[in-house]
């Protein structure tokens, strides 16, 4: 089902959390709301879910105006950053909760809960309590619980934010595969640009209660609408009026008109990539991303004087 948010404004006392925000989420898509903390992305998600009410504006789910509706009537599955596991219930009862509320027959509940537990790879843990699960398992239980009610839209609020890097990467990939199978319209809130790029079809970049840009991950990275998007989505250095990404800087050993002279501060080996930290003539710091082969070819070492030149750059009016 599609989601459409029209001119939403939300204030907490004097603080403007959302300032006239509009955004469309197409049916069957996976959209990421990406922004730093305090940008309003979680508030926007909670307004879509009905857990928070907007001061102004309208929310449509599947072209129906749900603005005044309570969360119970919106058909949303919500996944919380800190899992919101029902601590006094077993994994089975957590996942079955929404179905029991809907008074489904026991056999149907059984069938559905065990199918979902297999889907999230928690089969065999049905009788455990949340306290006996790892963070990653708890969040998969949270997902199964949200999916159990067959939601029209799935909303995830920083779902992997409290997990360690490896589990996060695993779950992210798993979420993408799940979405490719179910095609449930999904919105995920994240402050991690890598997560947004990897998982989403569409990224809405937010800052200070506004939407800065909406586009495909490639669009927002390669054609950022403004300075904020340029610097928040991926790294960027400012050289005068232009912005350049660390992998769009070329390092040479000889000067050549358009190059600038810099000294290598540190060469950091990151596996396939090498990051070269540089200091310019006025003490400005830059970094270049290059391949290991290239770094070896040029015999880059700290203390060395080299020359850099942008191969590609962006200027904002």
């Amino acid at each position: 089902m599609s989601i459409s948010v029209r001119r939403i404004t939300k204030r907490f006392d004097d603080y403007v959390a959302l300032d006239d925000v509009s955004v469309n989420v197409e049916r069957g898509s996976l959209t990421a709301l990406l922004g730093p903390s305090g940008s309003g992305k979680s508030t926007l998600l909670r307004i879509i879910a009905g857990l928070e009410t907007a001061d102004q504006g309208t929310v449509f789910i599947d072209e129906k105006n749900v603005t005044g509706r309570p969360p119970q009537e919106r058909g949303v599955g919500f996944v919380f950053q800190h899992y919101a596991a029902f601590k006094h219930m077993t994994v089975y009862d957590n996942v079955a909760f929404g179905l029991k509320i809907r008074k489904r027959p026991k056999a149907e509940i059984d069938e559905r809960v065990y199918r979902l537990l297999r889907l999230v790879q928690l089969d065999g843990l049905a009788k455990r309590y949340p306290a006996q699960l790892s963070g990653g398992q708890r969040q998969r239980m949270g997902l199964a619980r949200a999916l159990a009610i067959d939601p029209d839209v799935l909303l995830l609020d920083e779902p992997f934010g409290a997990l360690d890097a490896r589990v996060r990467a695993e779950l992210r990939e798993w979420l993408r595969r799940l979405h490719d199978e179910t095609h449930t319209t999904t919105v995920i809130v994240t402050h991690d640009q890598e997560e947004a790029m990897e998982v989403a079809d569409q990224v809405a970049v937010m800052s200070a209660g506004r939407i800065e840009q909406v586009g495909s991950p490639r669009d927002v990275y390669e054609r950022p609408a403004n300075e904020f998007v340029m610097t928040f989505v991926g790294q960027a250095h400012q050289l005068g009026d232009t912005f350049v990404r660390p992998h769009d800087l070329e390092v040479t050993l000889e000067p050549n008109g358009a190059t600038r002279e810099v000294m290598i501060d540190r060469v950091v080996h990151l596996g396939f990539n090498v990051r070269v930290d540089l200091v310019g003539g006025e003490g400005e710091r830059l970094s270049v991303q290059t391949t290991r082969d290239n770094a070896e070819l040029l015999e880059l070492a700290s203390g060395q004087i080299v020359y850099v030149r942008p191969t590609r750059h962006t200027t904002f009016a």
């Binding site: 309570p70 969360p71 599955g77 919500f78 919380f80 029902f86 601590k87 509320i101 949200a146 009610i149």
Partner: peptide
Amino acid sequence: TEQEQAAQTLGAS
């Protein structure tokens, strides 16, 4: 209040 909010999104009055 998160558990209560989760219950609401799952349809509980």
